[in-house]
Design a protein around this nucleic acid. Sequence first.
DNA 1: ATCGCCTCCTGCGCGC
DNA 2: TGCGCGCAGGAGGCGA
Length: 271
Amino acid sequence: MPELPEVETTKRGIEPHIVKRKVSAIHIRTPKLRWPIPRALKNHLPGNAITSVRRRAKYILIGFEHGTLITHLGMSGSMRICTPDRTWRKHDHFALEFSHGKQLRLHDPRKFGSVLWSKGDPEKHKLLAKLGPEPLHEEFDGDYLYRASRGRKASIKQHIMNHHIVVGVGNIYASEALFLSAIHPKRAAGRVSRQRMHTLADNIKIILRRSIEQGGTTLNDFLNENGEPGYFAQQLNVYGRAAEKCVSCKSVIKSIILGQRSTFYCPNCQR
DNA sequence: ATCGCCTCCTGCGCGC
DNA sequence: TGCGCGCAGGAGGCGA
């Protein structure tokens, strides 16, 4: 399940292979992922060069002079650079082919990913327009998180996973950040103190930065078929560790469902 | 305005 | 050993 570090790693991995490259053909092998892949891309893209590769939240934005390809990996998607003669795998849904003889392929078994086209400023696209700040930007800090949570009755875990508040904090890192911050995931967001919000914001940044650094070590894997790109060994303290002992206090890690999502925490450390 | 539930899809794990 | 069932999960959309 790509979290923000995997998406950032993917973006960094594909960028040097595709930026400034001219698209010679595109392949739409599956007409509909989360949404239909615009058929008009066949007219928009060939003959045009990629001018930029950016990330916003978990979207990878592939820029052209006349518009932007907005892509999302969903929960099982991955992108890979390969040669056009490489056999199509099951779930290879979409590909850009370049004049320098490479392809960028989107692979996504769950089909929760997306490929869309934005003519104007992609930040104004319906899917991006209302997103909150990037967690690694300066504007996201404890004060911001505190202000954005006053009066909120939703749990702190759902709060930090709410993309209107802050983007890119997925289910795994939400549990992990709350553990490091000693905050109970079910605590109402509006009842977390300013000081603890600072701790939480700091921990979110630390976890994401560390994961991105580790993801960087797998960048070589983006060329050809070596392994799954962007997935790195993660040191997780609570996620997926129900019934195991807390690394800090040896209490038994609990698992609950919160907002339809599995949630892990230490009932002793987190209050 | 907020919140919580539903939905998309398929691989996988579990139980028998 | 093989089969079938049910769940997980990102995030938009909708109903309350």
